[in-house]
Design a protein around this nucleic acid. Structure first.
Lengths: 185, 185, 185, 185
DNA sequence: TATGAATGAGGCTTCATTCAT
DNA sequence: AATGAATGAAGCCTCATTCAT
């Protein structure tokens, strides 16, 4: 449901408060919406907080798959908000000014955490050295967003198998791999 | 700009016609919007029509980069429409019933053309044999969509350098490549 | 169907002409509507033209029944127009200025013809001498109109049996009749 | 004034409220209109509630005259609504579903009350035994409606004298009465 | 002269916001 | 502080009328 479909009446109803009461907590509807989006991000961010610490453990593909599965689950509630933000430039402008929770700001949000993880793995030689972790993180998250958003992927986004394939593309690329050198024996 | 921000007044104004004239050509606003989206797709699709025939030519990464650069350019007009479609389920339902131009339907649209290209390259051994071309095409296009849409990538989406890096990730993956076998010599 | 439901588009469609062509024959929609009402009256009036000449023939109740049955039949097309006129004061004002066909004007329309008939019967002693024929005619026609119009009578107005009962009330009244004097024998 | 002339703007203006406020009390314009008609009926019905109890008292013609004079007065506000209902089939369908005030429903509305009165008078021998009270009541009310509605009666409907004559026609009929039998002397 | 696309005023309705209670 | 009725701007759409062809 987008920004315009979430009328103040519906919001108030679901929140179990009167319509007028909204304006005691938020100056206007936009602020309420931005706050909801930020709040959604907070949940995601907290879940991902330990991601950088997991570098060097399980294979990168496994970690990314797990992260993406969780993201896609959590995002079921967040994506509509983000879509609304994306589709409503008016909201984006106000997002910048939004008072980000200090905890969240410190963590930097999902993109920062994913970038930190990728950087840590790169240092361990498990990620290509020529990739910029930040930009790569953005591409990964944008893909997840695109896949769950675009009509192309069908309604409901990707299931776990789909996410696994997606991660496979990211990790190994679409180009065929040369045969690994025969282990020295 | 989303579906709701594109008021009939604004649309009529930009088209240089009276508001009432819209309804001589479209039964309602929804139909107008869907038609605009379909028309946008038509331009994209025509540009991509010869894509499958290019398989086996220049390196896959180069072709994809070129395609994505063009897509991102053309999509400057299409993305807002697609975003609106994505953010407005009401529109998606009606898109299915929309009278797709026969030319476009025959070509199958960008996802189909890209899938055909990938399949052709796979047959030539230039794309991993274990990937499903259709799903891979969807992931590629969804990524492009996500990158140009998500607030993460900043306003304006990716420039050509960004697209080049994005394609690099897709083609070669983020995992480090083993050293290619030393050419015989 | 009323004045507002008869849109110029519908009228033009049914008439098999283009919408714009209406305005070559009538200055505006109002004039078109008044003309249609007048035309409807013309048919009724012509059918009733010989009514006054029938005075003295068959019993008054029979004549009135026959007239009302025919009126109710013809009025199936006229009543909607009259209703529209009644419900739209704007139209009534313009009806007065309408160019009544000379023939119709000469005859005076249904009320005048019915009044003439009643007057002729009154002279023959077959209608109460203390009733004003014109006002009585108006009451009779208004009743027919009311019965065919008011929701009370149910959809479709009265059938022939209903009209017969209605006429019976009018002719003999609702008060019980004293026994007629025994014919001299 | 008809249904279409009573625009929401005009209604709101006359009611001294904002246009949008209408929709806090009624789901749409139709409902508002039907409610107004029902409310109008309520006033009429309450006024007529004691009618059946008056049978056997003053002469039938006097009672009917009194009733019709009052009806015509009250109906000055109701007739436009009823006309609108009659001219707008869409409204009639919704009238059936309208929540009639229980009081009104119990009384059955003006037609039922008038029919009850006529039946009571018939039992007293003051109304013809061969007339169906319900149908007669409908004819009487339809006539009043027709007279106040039809352009024939001129603007403003009937005055008291006109109503007296109308009732006279109904009570005694238009046929001449035979001389009452000479009282025994 | 006939057509029908274009026009724009105005209709009904929604909705974010205000305000008296 | 909370409520929810009231507000009025604005949205989509219809329709009588005009005008270029």
């Amino acid at each position: 449901m987008g920004y315009h479909d979430a009328t103040t009446r519906v919001i108030a109803e679901r929140a179990g408060v009167a319509e007028g009461s909204i304006y005691r907590h938020f100056p206007d509807k936009r602020a309420l919406f931005v706050a909801a989006a930020v709040e959604g991000q907070r949940g995601l961010t907290e879940w991902m907080a330990d991601l950088p610490a997991r570098a060097g453990g399980r294979p990168v593909a496994d970690v990314l798959t797990e992260v993406f599965v969780e993201l896609s689950r959590l995002r079921e509630t967040v994506v509509p908000l983000e879509l609304a933000m994306a589709a409503t430039p008016e909201l984006q402008r106000h997002l910048e000014g939004a008072a980000l929770d200090e905890t969240v700001r410190g963590l930097g949000g999902p993109p920062q955490l994913l970038a930190d993880y990728l950087r840590a793995e790169r240092e361990r030689g498990r990620v290509r050295a020529d990739l910029d972790p930040t930009r790569t993180a953005v591409v990964l998250l944008a893909t997840l967003f695109g896949v769950q958003t675009s009509p192309l992927a069908g309604p409901g986004g990707l299931d776990e198998a789909g996410i696994r394939e997606l991660v496979s593309v990211f990790v190994d690329g679409i180009a065929p791999r040369p045969a690994p050198p025969a282990p020295a024996g």
